[in-house]
Write a protein that binds this DNA or RNA. Structure first.
Length: 835
RNA sequence: GGGUGAGUGGUGGAAUGGCAUACACGACAGACUUAAAAUCUGUUGGCCGCAAGGUCUUGAGGGUUCAACUCCCUCCUCACCCACCA
């Protein structure tokens, strides 16, 4: 059945050319010898069991870009590798007993095969696999460098904890606040964990977004919001009856006169001190315990009822000497600011809700200029700007002005200082897992925390370990791993058993590709400085924040320690949309995946590639349709037959077609028309590819050219297969399609009598002369509505055009009873008569 | 709640101030065929009309303009990301 519907022998063609490209080393680059470098990078994948067509979009786009750039004369570097550490393989090991390394390496070979079947080629000599020691050795090296600069440190942090499995859970392992494995309720536990001090780079990460001119706006906006810079004042409140002070951060210092209470995060260190031995102690302690047990997921729900308790203490408001009560409240986060706020219920909605619930006073200090505020009538906080009220010497000022005035006043009086806060928090890199790069740290009873010396890297993951059904990390129980000698004193010591977040692995892999085999250094700085920044990075928008921010951070760090000479790793970024099926994201867990293997068997890889690129704008989500695949297949058959029956194929093709036929306008009118179409198509496709990868419209333009070429063949009166213009059209079609459908393009290229690979040919230029038309069709509108069309010779004067338009028989009925007030002529496009 | 993006035929989509619905899918009709598949040709936004043609139509409403899918304002809906950020 499949045999019957075949339009061209894609099976033989595709494997033949895939082999040919490998033989000729089309995708292999010598990083030392090059003229115009172009580093085309696709985000390296996690090795999952099987790729579906949704994954394919990323690689097909990247492959098309790489092939196009080759034809534009670049030395294109397109490497590929695998982000091979991670939780899924470890979970599978716990379930099935198969070692993560075995399943991961198996998946990798499956994926390599799938890439190849798609015709997606890479410089495989440069493959990096993050779970292999020759790679993670250098991930550990980066850790040591950060540690050496004080940018890797340990502190306590809360984790999701399953008391029954005695294990840490990732957010995704928590289902309805319970452990996914045993359904025990998840609690919070604080553990000593490793962090990278990314906040040290917050300001530069934010400022340098300005340098990323070729990144999508929406990714930049997301990073901006994630870093979340806000400027404000840190106030030192004197605690009543004590010499201690309490620091609060606010962005709204203009509302300081309306502060009616202070709210602390439950974890705030002063909470315990305040209530110790007081009558409030029991109530507060109980509430704090309750809040702490709420998982991070629960606590981050905005709809959670506000709760709090009075601590019995007060601070003094420096601006008016008033006593302000200190409360503990669940809506305050320890991680942001100082973990304490001055609450101004009149002008902050959360404070307003809290004040209403606990009957705390509400004082208006900024009046709405449109309708004066009355406390009793307020249903919600007034958050806008306005006129200062009840604010002593600042009364009557604009709140936007007083925000600076009061800040200056605070600094003058020593009540506080202006500071900048970021939402960005330090990067928690510790994972209580097996399948990751071990953190190269040793604990010695005598010497304390000792970093593993560089010469002892890598700290190898022990292979012979037992995976327990509870999910506990097997590293803890591997005595040969844990027990070691202190590198400083030689005494008995133990190793850190936490491994690193896989985002650490992926934050520097793009540097390793340049010199993947190097074993004395992570990379060769000289070559890296030549090839980086990456000219084009392509990947899913889901990585818009974390991966891209971490990579930017690591790059800046490496620049600071003199390892690289640039501070942004990715010059151009393209984020493609996801492929949906039945309206939702294609994924194995949703059961709506489409396997490329079956489609390639029925239609060939070129069809799958063409459809994937034609499906819609690549930066947007798109719905997969099996019917659409057939359409792409039919189109390729149409092109194939055009090459077979058109002039120039095999024997009939004149050898010197370029020289003879590309010199001037065609022999007759039809040829000139077709040549105009050929060259406008080249222009359109080139601009679509250069200006943002608009594959969908590029392909539709080629479809139009194919349709017009068929029309031209059908029109030829002498029964021949057309002249030089048709041959030129066919050759152009093959070239313009080649980045998208490389196998069939190579085959047709050969049929056209060409010797070398089409990817060694240069991309066709367009001929401005061929584009020039001597007659234009102009639209005539009356009051903006199309009424007629006229053919106008190039160079006709506007006045003459107006005259023709006004006397046009189809236009006459619409203007004859009216006065023509204005005639607008848009050159070569339209005439609009206003009557 | 905040941020970002989107809303156009039966469907995927095109047009980013200048002919709305390119290109493709689907559907319908025809040619070829004993028949089917494949292929080729034609029709295909709604309404009125035998037709010529007219008229309405880009989520809703308003505005700017000779001209608005496109720019501005108000509102509605959906998707994604973040979410008590002081």
């Amino acid at each position: 059945m499949i045999e019957d519907t075949r339009q061209y022998p894609f099976n033989e063609i595709e494997s033949k050319w895939q082999e040919y490209w490998r033989q000729m080393r089309l995708f292999n680059v010598d990083t030392k010898e090059y003229k115009n470098k172009y580093y085309c990078l696709m985000m390296f994948p996690y090795p999952s069991a099987a790729l579906h067509v949704g994954h394919g979009r990323n690689y097909i786009i990247g492959d098309a870009v790489a092939r196009y750039k080759m034809m534009r004369g670049y030395d294109v570097l397109t490497p590929m590798g695998f982000d091979a550490f991670g939780l899924p393989a470890e979970n599978a090991a716990i379930k099935s007993g198969v070692h993560p390394e075995t399943s991961t390496l198996n998946n990798i070979s499956t994926m390599r095969r799938q890439f190849s079947q798609w015709g997606v080629e890479y410089d495989w000599d440069r493959e990096v696999v993050s779970c292999l020691p020759d790679y993670y050795k250098w991930t550990q090296w980066i850790f040591l460098k950060l540690y050496g600069k004080g940018l890797a440190y340990k502190k306590k942090a809360f984790v999701n904890w399953c008391p029954s499995c005695k294990t840490v859970l990732a957010n995704e392992q928590v289902v309805d606040n319970a452990c996914e494995r045993c359904s025990t309720e998840v609690t919070q536990k604080d553990l000593e964990q490793w962090f990278f001090k990314i906040t040290h780079y917050a300001d530069r990460l934010l400022k340098d977004i300005g340098k990323l001119t070729e990144w999508p706006e929406r990714v930049k906006t997301m990073q901006c919001n994630w870093i979340g810079k806000s400027e404000g004042v840190e106030i030192d409140f004197k605690i009543d009856g004590s010499s201690d002070t309490l620091k609060c951060f606010t962005t709204r210092i203009d509302t300081i006169f309306g502060a009616t209470f202070i709210a602390l995060a439950p974890e705030h260190p002063l909470v315990e001190k305040f209530v110790k031995g007081s009558k409030e102690e029991k109530a507060v302690a109980e509430l704090v315990r309750k809040m702490r047990d709420e998982s991070k997921i629960e606590r981050s729900d905005a709809n959670v009822e506000k709760e709090g308790a009075f601590t019995g203490k007060y601070v003094i408001n420096p601006v008016n000497g008033k006593k302000v009560p200190i409360w503990v409240a669940n809506y305050i986060l320890m991680e942001y600011g100082t973990g304490a706020i001055m609450a101004v219920p009149a002008h902050d909605q959360r404070d307003f809700e809290f004040a209403k619930k606990y009957k705390l006073p509400i004082e208006v200090v900024i009046d709405d200029p449109k309708s004066p505020l009355k406390v009793e009538a307020m249903k919600e906080a007034y958050m806008g700007e306005g006129i200062m009220a009840n604010s002593a010497q600042f009364n009557g000022l604009d709140s936007s002005v007083s925000i600076t005035k009061i800040a200056e006043f605070f600094e003058e009086k020593g009540y506080g200082k202006r500071t900048t806060q970021y939402k960005l928090r330090d990067w928690l890199i510790s994972r209580q897992r097996y399948w990751g790069a071990p953190i190269p740290i040793i604990y010695c009873n005598k010497c304390g925390v000792v970093p593993v010396p560089e010469k002892d890297l890598p700290v190898l993951l022990p292979k012979n370990v037992e995976f327990r059904p509870t999910g506990e990390s097997p590293l803890k129980f591997s005595e040969s791993f844990v027990n070691t000698k202190c590198p400083k004193c030689g005494g008995q010591a133990t190793r850190e058993t936490d491994t690193m977040d896989t985002f650490v692995d992926s934050s520097w892999y793009y540097l390793r590709y340049i010199t993947p085999k190097l074993d004395q250094k992570p990379f060769d700085a000289e070559l890296v400085n030549k090839w980086l920044p990456v000219d084009q990075y392509i990947g899913g928008v889901e990585h818009a924040i974390l991966h891209l921010l971490y990579s930017r951070f690591i790059t800046k760090f490496l620049k600071d320690i003199g390892c690289v000479g640039f501070d942004e790793p990715f010059k151009n970024l393209f984020t493609q949309g996801m492929i949906t099926k039945n309206g939702i994201k294609m994924s194995k867990s949703k059961g709506n995946t489409v396997s490329p293997d079956d489609l390639i068997a029925s239609y060939g890889a070129d069809t799958v590639r063409l459809y994937t690129l034609f499906i819609g704008p690549p930066e947007k989500d798109a719905e997969w349709s099996d019917r659409g695949v057939e359409g792409a297949y039919r189109f390729l058959g149409r092109v194939w037959r055009l090459v077979e029956k058109g002039p120039g194929s095999r024997v009939s093709r004149p050898a010197d077609i370029e020289g003879r036929d590309r010199q001037g306008p065609g022999k007759d009118k039809e040829d000139a028309t077709l040549r105009r179409k050929i060259h406008s198509t080249i222009k359109k496709v080139t601009e679509d590819l250069d200006g943002g990868f608009h594959f969908n419209t590029a392909i539709s333009a080629v479809m139009e050219l194919v349709n017009e070429t068929y029309d031209r063949l059908a029109q030829s009166t002498d029964g021949s297969s057309g002249g030089g213009a048709v041959a030129e059209a066919i050759e152009t079609v093959v070239m313009l399609l080649s980045p998208f459908v490389p196998h069939i393009a190579e085959e047709m290229w050969q049929k056209l009598g060409k010797k070398n690979s089409i990817f060694r040919a240069s991309w066709p230029p367009y001929d401005e002369k061929a584009l020039a038309a001597d007659v234009f069709t102009m639209v005539i509108q009356v009051n903006g509505r199309m009424r007629s069309k006229i053919d106008v010779p190039a160079g006709m004067k506007d006045d003459k055009i107006k005259e023709i338009a006004l006397s046009d028989p189809k236009v006459q009925p619409f203007i004859k009873d009216k006065t023509v007030r204005q005639v607008v002529v848009v050159p070569k496009k339209l005439v609009n008569i206003v009557a």
